[in-house]
Simulated scan of single mutants.
Amino acid sequence: MSPDATAMIVDDEPLLREHLQTHLARLWPALRVVAQARNGREAVELFEREAPQVVFLDVHMPGMNGIEAGRAIAGRALTVFVTAYEQYAVQAFEQGAVDYLVKPFEPGRLEATVSRLQQRLAAEPGAAADPAEAGRLDAVLERVARQLRVQATGAPWLQWIKASVGSTLRLIPVDQVAYLRSDEKYTLVAWTGGEALIRKPIRELVDELDPSCFVQVHRSVIVNLRQVEQVTRGPNETADLHLVGRPETLPVSRSYLHLFRQM
């Protein structure tokens, strides 16, 4: 017997909200949809008032998008991301979201999602998410939210990095950069022509670099995926990256290991 539960559906398209609710009523009669929201800000407000156990959350919406709303409610509900852009949902799913649906969703795919939600609720009645799991989800949602903000503004990805080498100002082509590594004051830029120190921190650079090539693999390291030769798994869900033509290795912390599961 399927467990009783409450849910909220968030999408800026009324027809899509109705379509999802209709299918949910057929697949999960014991699920009660207590709220529908048109955007992220409304979703957060309704969530605080209704406290649903399950949230179906569209990624792309005007104003506060679904990723930003997901960060606001992370850890307090079982979240299913709904998007036409699968890569965003996959990142969130791997880090703690219960599931994702790609528009237009197939009824069979939704049925599998419903089954997964029911299993989670039956196993953990009254519990939304593990705190550690919520923390991992929040970290990946923060990165995805930055990517979406850059895309929304139309800002181009960084093409050159300015660095002082001795008394010379160098313009380093971003596509030649192997990795960037920060300490407390500086960021080391390692590229095919050498190394240089800059003052811009990792947290700013990660917003400006094309995420299809550059990914953060540690709180202090960004790597160019095109420069990765192999990945060596380590203990406690960590790994080391070996780069093309370079002797050094780079650490991958457990929060970022999912990026290399398919490599």
Rank of each mutant, 00 (worst) to 15 (best):
S2P: 15
D4K: 12
A5V: 04
A5M: 06
T6N: 07
M8K: 13
D11T: 00
E13D: 10
E13H: 08
L16I: 12
R26D: 15
L27C: 03
L27V: 00
L31D: 05
R32I: 13
V33N: 01
V33R: 08
R38K: 12
R38A: 14
R38N: 12
N39C: 12
G40C: 10
E45D: 13
E45K: 11
L46P: 01
F47M: 04
E48K: 13
E48G: 06
A51I: 10
A51C: 10
P52A: 03
Q53T: 07
V54Y: 11
V55N: 04
L57A: 12
M61K: 07
P62L: 03
G63N: 09
G63S: 12
G63E: 08
N65V: 06
I67K: 00
A69Q: 01
A69R: 01
G70Y: 03
A72I: 10
I73M: 04
T79D: 00
V82T: 05
V82M: 02
T83N: 07
A84V: 04
A84D: 06
A84P: 02
Q87A: 11
A89K: 01
Q91K: 01
F93L: 07
Q95S: 15
G96M: 00
A97M: 07
K103C: 10
E106K: 00
G108N: 08
R109W: 04
E111P: 00
T113H: 09
T113K: 05
V114F: 00
R116S: 08
Q118Y: 04
Q119G: 14
Q119A: 14
A122H: 13
A122K: 15
A122D: 14
A123H: 11
E124S: 06
G126L: 11
A127N: 08
A128S: 01
A128N: 02
A129T: 03
D130A: 11
E133S: 05
A139I: 03
V140S: 01
L141I: 06
V144I: 13
L148F: 03
W157K: 02
Q159W: 12
W160H: 09
W160M: 05
A163R: 01
S164M: 14
L171K: 12
L171F: 13
L171T: 08
I172T: 04
V174M: 04
D175T: 10
A178G: 13
R181W: 15
Y186Q: 10
T187W: 05
V189C: 04
W191D: 09
G193S: 03
G193V: 09
E195K: 13
L197D: 04
E204T: 12
E208K: 02
L209D: 03
D210H: 01
P211C: 07
C213V: 15
F214E: 00
V215Y: 03
V215T: 05
V217N: 06
H218T: 01
R219H: 14
R219F: 14
I222F: 03
V223C: 13
N224V: 00
N224T: 06
V228E: 02
Q230Y: 11
Q230S: 15
Q230C: 09
V231M: 02
P235C: 07
T238S: 14
A239N: 09
A239I: 12
D240M: 15
L241H: 10
H242I: 10
H242V: 11
V244I: 15
G245C: 09
G245D: 11
P247S: 14
E248I: 13
T249A: 13
L250Q: 00
S255L: 14
Y256Q: 04
Y256F: 07
H258P: 04
R261L: 15
R261M: 14
Q262K: 13
M263T: 14
